[in-house]
Amino acid sequence: MAGFLVRRLGQSVLVVLGVLVLVFALMQLTGDPAALMLPDNASPADVEFMRKKLGTDKPLHLQFIRFLFGDRVLGERVEERVVEHQFMSSVVTGRIREHRGVIMGDFGDSVRFVDQPALPIVLERFPLTLYLMAVAFAYSAGLSLVLGIASAVYRNSLLDQLLRALAIIGQSVPNFWLGLMLILVFAVWLGLLPAMGSGSFEHVILPAITLGSAPLGRNVRLVRSCMLDVLGADYIRTARAKGLSELAVVVGHALKNAAIPVVTVWGLDIGLFFGGAVITESIFGWPGMGSLIIQSVYKRDFPVVQAAVFFVALVFVLVNLLVDLLYAWLDPRVRLAH
């Protein structure tokens, strides 16, 4: 088990490094960041200073090292200074300070929220997104287990057919459309739930259903087919032959074995949730990380986008690491195979 853990940890570190390369490249895609960040009437001295500050006057590999470990690793000292930035159609002033490297959690300062470090802005918004994702996950995972098992146990019944049809619909409906329809029906027509905003549990219901419905549809189908595989196995027949109740057979014997692929998919769902949250949060005006990312992209606030992308990737990697460990616990063959 320890060997498995070390191997998986090593792989995760590699993935995170890869993400950092991509996040670093994001900044390079925009051409000369100094030109982008300074007003067009900036003095050559300011442009020079900004290039030096951003490190874009150095070869690419040194820039990456600086991005990771900060100015000090390259033996440079940066004095604090206030400079003007171009920000959309206006000019704002921003502080130039020493870059401490992403290793210290420093992605630079936000352009939109002048002088505020990017990562804390992202972290400040994360709890709301986490809350939304948790409710969406509880909804999609919990309901998919119940419905998937019912569908499998009553295979080919009307219930099964109905659930499978609903699952396909849930999976194929785009979430922005579903979100708008839910608002129309539950907020405008029925007046049962708020149309947007955050604050109470009522507010999270519609966004969570919007976010969780695609994974729910897929997971119902997955749980059903996994359960069907397992229910046909010899040891289930043995369990039934022992005279166990159907409930004990399904929940006690079949479920744990059927759960292995399902748990893996749950881990992947986290990525889907982050992606979906960007759209869902915009539709419902939910002030979480998704809407932060959209606004930051829109306003070309690169440090915040970089911090957010990195943070999302980090959470995704960690969750999948956890899922793999759970997987190994559920199925001893996984850890033995390595």
Partner: peptide
Amino acid sequence: KTVPEASTRVSALLAGD
């Protein structure tokens, strides 16, 4: 409040939010 999506803004108005 801020709601970027125009249809949601309209729905919020119609829902009394």
